[in-house]
Design a protein around this nucleic acid. Structure first.
Length: 606
RNA sequence: GGGGGCGUAGCUCAAUUGGUUAGAGUGCCACCCUGUCACGGUGGAUGUUGCGGGUUCGAGUCCCGUCGCUCCCGCCA
C-alpha cells in the first residue's frame, strides 16, 4: 500500500465498505465522547469521518492532537447505519475505523479557525494565507480560477489561437501607469521595467505573422489599490488578431465570454450574443458612466430644452450659461416617505451636486418643491418626455455638463441600489464603443490622447487631416459586465504615417515617436498587417463568477492595499552588497529619515 | 497626496452614551461523557481597550496627535 494514502478524503462510498484503506489529511474537527472519538479528516477532495475506539493502542496519544494537524490513518471502511448516516457530506454513508495512525505534521494553535467560516482581520488572513486558503470559500475560489483559466485556454486553442510568452524584463514606456523598475547590474544607471501589459510585444507578434495570439499575461502597474484592483500585479487574458475589424474581435470575445460565463455560472442569466453596443457619448448621457451596470433599469435623460426658458430660475440660468439639466425617472415610487427624498438629495450633494429637484406624479397632479415655479406646458412636456404615469417620480440635476453627468451617474447607481432595482441573478454585458481619440487637457487646454495612442482613428489619415481632433473617434472599445470594466481593446494604428500624424496632433514630433516607440515604428515600416485586440482582466472575471466583492478573494497570494506581501514580507530591505552591485544608493524621504533616526536614538538610549 | 469607516481577550463582538473589579460566544487548558457530525457537560486561564498626550474627582467612552487595516477620490495609455 502507498505510504500516505490509498484513497482521498472525498471518494469513499457505501460500496467500499469492508476495504482496508489509508487516508491522509488535516484534522478538521474532533468530537471526543470520552470513549469513542470521531475525527473529520479533510483534504482537497473532501471530508471523511474516522472513528477511534478506546482499545486502539494510539488512543492515549490523542491528547497531543490539535485541529489542523496532518495525520495518516489506516483502517477498515464501515458502512453506517441509516440513523448514523450524515447526508450533508458525500462520504456520509461510511466511516473509517482507525487501526493505525501516524502524525505527519503537527499544528500549533492556529490564529483563526479553518473549519468555521468566522471572520478574521484581513492582515492576519494575509499573513497566514496558507491557512486561509485551506478554508472552503477561498479554496473554492482558487479552484474556480484554475478551471476558468484552463477553459479559456482550451476554448481559444479551439478557435485557432496560439499562446506565447513575452518578456517580463522589458523597457520602461513613457505613457500609462507608473512602472515597476528593476536596476541593471551590467549597465549602471539603467533600468528594466516590468511590463504594464505585453502591448507592444503582442503587436510585434502580429507583425511577425502569427495571426492569432493569446496569453494569460502577468501585468505590473505601480498604482494604488481599489476593491477591484490589486496593486502590483494582475493577470490579463491578452489577445491579438491580424486582418480583423472591430466586429471580428467582438465576435471572438462574445463567443468566449458566453461560453465561460454560462459554464461557470449556470444558475445565472447570462446575456445572449451579440452583446449590446453603446457609443461612449450615449453611455455617458444615459448612465453617467463609461462602465454602466445594465442590471440597473434606470436611465438618465437630457431635459435642458424644457428648462431653458423655465420660471424655475435656478435651472434656467444654468442652461442659459451653457450647462445642462438631466433627469432620472423612477417608476412607481410615489409612496416613498419624505426622508427618502431628503436622503437622496443629501447623497447627491455628497457627490458634488448643488442640489437635486424632484417631481412626484400622483393622483393626477405634480407634487414637487419646484412645480410652482414651472409653467403648465413645461410640466406637460416633462411628462411626455419621460412617458410618465401616475406614481412615477423624476429627479433633476443641473450643472456644467461634465459635473452633472458624473453626479447623475452616481445618483442612478444609488437609486438602483437603495430601491433594490438590480437583477442580482444576471450577468449583463455591453460594449462601449466610439471613444474619442483626443480630448482637451483641463489644465493646459491642449489636445491630448484620451486613451490609447496606438488606436486607429476612425476615418484614418483623412479624419486626422480634415476633422476637428475632438470630433474624431477611435476604434477603441471596452467590454463591461455588471458595471465592472473587464477590458479595453482597440484596432491598432499599424500605419507609421498615420501614427506620426496622430502624435503630431497630440503635440509630439516624429523624433519623439521614433525615440519612444522605435521598435514598433521600425516594424510597421517593414510590412505590418492590420490588427487589433483586447485584454480582459482574468482576476475580475473570476471575481464576478465567484460573486466576490473584493479581488483579493480570487488571488492566491495577494498584496495588501499598501502593496505589501505580509506572508513573504515583501518588499524588504536588501544587503549593502546587493545595492553596490546594482550601483544603487538609497535616499530616504525626509520624514522617514527623521523617524529612522529617532528609532536609532532610542535604541542607543536603551 | 486627500477624505470616510473601523481598531476592546487568539478570533467575532458587548459594555446602560463619562461612573464599582471591562463581559459574552468561540478558540485555548483541565476534568466528565461510547454514535457524534458546529457533539454535549462542569470548571479555569486569557486584556497596556492600537499607541502617545490632554480634559475630568473619574476615560474603553470626550478632545488632539499618531500608527495599522479597509473603502473611496486622485492615479490606473
Amino acid at each position: 500500500m502507498h505510504i500516505y494514502r490509498s484513497h482521498n478524503c472525498g471518494e469513499l462510498r457505501k460500496e467500499n465498505a469492508g476495504l482496508i484503506v489509508k487516508l491522509s489529511g488535516w484534522i478538521h474537527s474532533v468530537r471526543d465522547h470520552g470513549g469513542v472519538i470521531f475525527i473529520d479528516l479533510r483534504d482537497h477532495y473532501g471530508l471523511t469521518q474516522i472513528v477511534i475506539d478506546p482499545k486502539c493502542d494510539f488512543y492515549q496519544e490523542l491528547e497531543k492532537w490539535r485541529v489542523e494537524t496532518v495525520v495518516c490513518f489506516s483502517g477498515k471502511v464501515l458502512g453506517r447505519t441509516p440513523e448514523t448516516t450524515n447526508s450533508k457530506i458525500p462520504t456520509g454513508a461510511i466511516e473509517v475505523a482507525a487501526e493505525s495512525m501516524e502524525i505527519l505534521g503537527e499544528a500549533d494553535i492556529i490564529p483563526f479557525q479553518v473549519a468555521k467560516e468566522e471572520q478574521a482581520p484581513e492582515a492576519m488572513r494575509l499573513k497566514y494565507r496558507f491557512l486561509d486558503l485551506r478554508r472552503d470559500r477561498l479554496h473554492k475560489n482558487i479552484i474556480l480560477r484554475s478551471q476558468v483559466i484552463s477553459e479559456i485556454r482550451r476554448k481559444l486553442m479551439d478557435m485557432g489561437f496560439n499562446e506565447f510568452q513575452t518578456p517580463i524584463l522589458t523597457s520602461s514606456s513613457p505613457e500609462g501607469a507608473r512602472d515597476y523598475l528593476v536596476p541593471s547590474r551590467l549597465h549602471p544607471g539603467q533600468f528594466y521595467a516590468l511590463p504594464q501589459a505585453p502591448q507592444q510585444f503582442k503587436q510585434l507578434l502580429m507583425v511577425a505573422g502569427f495571426d492569432r495570439y493569446f496569453q494569460i499575461a502577468p501585468c505590473f502597474r505601480d498604482e494604488d489599490a481599489r476593491a477591484d484592483r490589486s496593486p502590483g500585479e494582475f493577470y490579463q487574458l491578452d489577445l491579438e488578431m491580424s486582418f480583423v475589424t472591430q466586429d471580428d474581435i467582438f465576435a471572438v470575445i462574445e463567443e468566449l465570454f458566453s461560453y465561460i460565463f454560462s459554464k461557470f455560472a449556470a444558475d445565472k442569466n447570462v446575456d445572449s450574443t451579440p452583446f449590446v453596443r453603446i457609443p461612449y457619448k450615449e453611455a455617458m448621457l444615459k448612465y453617467g458612466s463609461d462602465k454602466p451596470d445594465l442590471r440597473n433599469p434606470l436611465v438618465i435623460a437630457d431635459v435642458s430644452s424644457v428648462f431653458k426658458e423655465s420660471g424655475f430660475n435656478a435651472f434656467a440660468s444654468v442652461v442659459q450659461k451653457g450647462g445642462v439639466v438631466r433627469a432620472i425617472k423612477v417608476p412607481g415610487i410615489a409612496g416613498q416617505p419624505r426622508k427618502f427624498y431628503d436622503d437622496m438629495i443629501a447623497f447627491a450633494q455628497g457627490c458634488g451636486a448643488k442640489g437635486m429637484a424632484y417631481i412626484i406624479w400622483t393622483g393626477g397632479e405634480e407634487k414637487s418643491p419646484i412645480a410652482k415655479f414651472m409653467k403648465r406646458e413645461e410640466l406637460d412636456s416633462l411628462k411626455e418626455l419621460g412617458k410618465i404615469s401616475d406614481g412615477d417620480v423624476m429627479f433633476f440635476l443641473a450643472d456644467k455638463e461634465k459635473a452633472v453627468t458624473e453626479i447623475a451617474g452616481q445618483v442612478r447607481t444609488e437609486l438602483g441600489n437603495r430601491l433594490g432595482l438590480l437583477d442580482k441573478n444576471a450577468f449583463r454585458f455591453c460594449w462601449i464603443t466610439d471613444f474619442p481619440m483626443f480630448e482637451l487637457d483641463e489644465e493646459t487646454n491642449k489636445v491630448i490622447f484620451s486613451h490609447n495612442p496606438f488606436s486607429m482613428p476612425q476615418g484614418g489619415m483623412d479624419a486626422l487631416l480634415s476633422k476637428d481632433p475632438l470630433e474624431i473617434y477611435a476604434y477603441q472599445y471596452d467590454i463591461v459586465c455588471n458595471g465592472v470594466e473587464l477590458s479595453s481593446g482597440a484596432i491598432r494604428n499599424h500605419r507609421p504615417e498615420v501614427m506620426y500624424k496622430a502624435f503630431e496632433i497630440a503635440g509630439y514630433g516624429q523624433d519623439t515617436v521614433d525615440e519612444k516607440f522605435g521598435g514598433m515604428i521600425r516594424a510597421f515600416k517593414l510590412g505590418a498587417p492590420p490588427h487589433g485586440g483586447i485584454a480582459p482582466g482574468v482576476d475580475r472575471m473570476v471575481m464576478l463568477l465567484a460573486e466576490e466583492p473584493n479581488i483579493r478573494e480570487v488571488i492566491a497570494f495577494p498584496f495588501n492595499q499598501q502593496a505589501q506581501d505580509l506572508m513573504m514580507n515583501a518588499p524588504c530591505e536588501v544587503t549593502e552588497k546587493q545595492l553596490r552591485e546594482l550601483h544603487i544608493r538609497i535616499v530616504q524621504p525626509k520624514d522617514k529619515k527623521d523617524k529612522a533616526q529617532e528609532v536609532k536614538a532610542e535604541e542607543v538610549k536603551a
